[in-house]
Amino acid sequence: MLSLEQHICFAVYSTAHMFNRLYRPMLDELGLTYPQYLTLVVLSEEGAQSVGSIGDRLKLESSTLTPMLKRLEKADLIIRRRDTKDERVVHVDLSPAGREILGKIPLINVAIADAIGETDEDREEIRRALVAIRDRLEAAIG
């Protein structure tokens, strides 16, 4: 049997926990949770999109995403609109206040990169390896 430290899943879990602890104070200053932060990043990259598209990018179910989007809308950081042709589809875009918050994101990115250390190339190699593992796990789930 593998020890706790030999489990890849524990290394990923405990690293994610440390990331959350590092991000939390910076995001608290912006009034954001980590998933809310990621949602704003997705919207900044791709512009207005459907709830389903955001869920696909973030690997989140609609039942998790919808309440979070409602909180972001209540905080005036996003705008949600029903599709005029298909009312089942909801489109989401950044509000002016959401765009303003995004201006503070580079400071967070620098702080995280500094905490991780390594070179840009090393961080990119680590990111690629993690994404490859994630994608294989997703494929195994079906």
Rank of each mutant, 00 (worst) to 15 (best):
M26D: 03
L27P: 01
E29G: 13
E29M: 06
T33S: 01
Q36D: 05
L38I: 06
L38Q: 15
T39Y: 04
L40R: 12
L40S: 08
V41N: 10
V42K: 06
V42T: 11
L43Y: 01
E45P: 01
E46H: 12
A48V: 06
Q49C: 05
Q49F: 02
S50F: 06
G52S: 11
D56T: 14
R57Y: 13
E61A: 15
S62N: 15
S62C: 09
T66H: 05
T66A: 04
T66E: 03
P67R: 14
P67K: 14
P67N: 11
P67F: 13
M68Q: 07
K70R: 04
R71C: 07
L72E: 06
A75Y: 12
I78K: 02
R80G: 02
R81T: 06
R82F: 03
D83F: 12
K85H: 11
K85R: 14
K85Y: 04
V89C: 01
V89L: 04
V89M: 02
V89D: 00
V90T: 15
D93C: 14
L94Q: 04
L94W: 11
P96C: 07
G98E: 11
R99V: 12
R99H: 08
E100N: 07
I101N: 00
L102Q: 09
G103L: 03
L107A: 10
I108W: 08
I108M: 02
A111Y: 02
I112C: 00
D120G: 15
E124A: 09
E124N: 08
E125F: 03
R127V: 02
A129H: 06
A129Y: 01
I133W: 00
I133D: 02
R136L: 09
E138H: 04
A139K: 07
A140M: 13
A140S: 08
